[in-house]
């Protein structure tokens, strides 16, 4: 018989996969989207080349916020112990 907690665990693992896909897209998109031109004509944000700022700095901060939100909104507080031991 399927443990009910596993349904929750499966959903959470799936959230991990979705987050990684978002993470990779931001990282790849900004780095090579903005950084492929001539380095002498880069735009700068706060002293950093724009591709680097968005891909490595803003992207990382964004991911940390997403992860924190996922913890608050989607991750459930369930018991990890064997049920019979608890009752």
């Amino acid at each position: 018989m399927q443990d009910k907690r596993f349904k929750i665990a499966h959903k959470e693992a799936l959230i991990g996969v979705v987050l990684v896909i978002i993470n990779f897209s931001i990282w790849y998109g900004f780095a090579y989207g903005l950084g492929s031109g001539n380095p002498l004509q880069y735009k700068y944000v706060l002293g950093f080349p724009a591709w680097f700022f968005y891909s490595c700095i803003a992207g990382t901060v964004f991911m940390i916020i997403c992860i924190w939100l996922a913890m608050k909104l989607f991750f459930k507080d369930i018991s990890l112990e064997e049920e019979d031991k608890h009752q």
Binding site: L19, N23, W27, S55, G59, T60, M63, I78
Partner: peptide, 17 residues
Amino acid sequence: MAQLPAGYFVLMVLGKK
């Protein structure tokens, strides 16, 4: 920065199960 998932992906995928 490809190492960032090492912080969350491992724990989410192995996770509670």
